[in-house]
Amino acid sequence: MEQLGIEASRPYLAQLYAPLCKLTEWWYTMRAGPNNMPLYYDGNESGWDNTTVFDAGPPVEGVDLATYLILQMETLSFMASLLAQPAESHAWNVRAEEQLQQLLYYAVVDDRFRSRSPDTNDNTSACSLQTYLPILLGKRLPQAILNALKTDLADGGPFLTAYGLASESLRSSKYEADSYWRGPIWAPPTYQIVDGLTAAGEIALARLIAQRYCDMIVQAPGFYENYDALTGKGLRCPGVCWTAAVFLLLATWLEQHPAS
């Protein structure tokens, strides 16, 4: 965009802005729960197909979904400012902040995020790594919450092994070594959590997770769909693009950010 110049890029930006506004509004028009928390109706919608978060049944107030929408509305605010629409820019920022406050009010238990059922107000599984994706909000989160998330994501916590972050807590009765989102290590949440820890200023832990993931890939070549969290063995189909992409991104980041 800097190469094109703001004026030259505005038509292209406008083409992106309008449908992204509609997509954002869809969640709040069609999928807003009683607390204005966005709802998933199925695990497949989240990308975490068989996660334990949905074991009690849908709908679920996805803490990861609310996180994505906060970041999306902040992006829309920035886009609107570039399109010389200050009123819309301000409105998106206000809505992003409102969603953040709703997330913190309705979805935090003991300084940790918990998705819940809007029908019963019961918390869903506390054992899925999916509920740690609000770390993407970085320093927008209160320090007490950041400290709790860091503790759980670090060595000695319920997720981190010698190879990376298990998708289900190793202490969970539902943990399975080869059961998609109920145990194995996956590329997308690994990258998201490393990115979130970096945004929160937790560089050392971000490096540790990234290094273990990259070392696992090198030791088990093939870029598998996911990996056994306790052995590092590649599972399911090899040659998966997101595994390769995350490896390249994290390996490059590690090279650019050597340990001090």
Results as ranks from 00 to 15, higher is better:
227 Y>V: 04
231 T>G: 06
24 T>N: 15
14 A>K: 13
85 Q>N: 15
178 D>F: 05
48 W>P: 02
82 L>V: 07
136 L>N: 02
52 T>P: 05
188 P>F: 12
198 T>Y: 01
218 V>C: 03
200 A>S: 10
214 C>M: 00
85 Q>D: 14
219 Q>V: 00
29 T>S: 11
161 T>C: 09
16 L>Q: 12
216 M>K: 09
23 L>I: 12
38 P>T: 10
163 Y>H: 15
234 G>P: 01
165 L>R: 02
249 L>F: 04
258 P>M: 10
182 R>M: 07
3 Q>C: 08
98 E>Y: 07
167 S>L: 04
196 G>R: 08
51 T>C: 12
211 Q>A: 13
131 T>F: 01
71 L>F: 09
153 L>F: 07
52 T>Q: 08
154 A>D: 15
102 Q>I: 10
179 S>I: 01
9 S>L: 10
10 R>I: 04
170 L>I: 10
90 H>W: 11
94 V>L: 14
116 R>I: 05
190 T>P: 07
84 A>Q: 12
221 P>E: 03
153 L>S: 12
123 N>G: 10
210 A>N: 03
189 P>W: 02
44 N>I: 13
148 A>P: 03
97 E>P: 01
172 S>V: 04
182 R>V: 07
243 T>D: 04
251 A>R: 15
142 P>M: 04
212 R>C: 06
66 A>R: 05
181 W>S: 03
32 A>F: 05
256 Q>H: 11
3 Q>R: 15
154 A>H: 12
101 Q>R: 14
197 L>H: 03
223 F>Q: 09
26 W>C: 08
8 A>K: 15
94 V>W: 03
105 Y>N: 11
8 A>W: 00
184 P>M: 04
17 Y>R: 12
186 W>H: 07
28 Y>L: 14
157 G>I: 10
114 R>I: 05
250 L>T: 09
235 L>Y: 01
129 L>G: 06
74 E>D: 15
111 D>M: 02
218 V>K: 14
241 C>S: 14
225 E>A: 06
124 T>N: 11
139 K>P: 00
172 S>Y: 08
229 A>P: 09
165 L>K: 02
54 F>A: 00
104 L>P: 06
187 A>L: 06
210 A>H: 07
22 K>P: 00
143 Q>A: 15
219 Q>K: 14
221 P>D: 02
223 F>A: 12
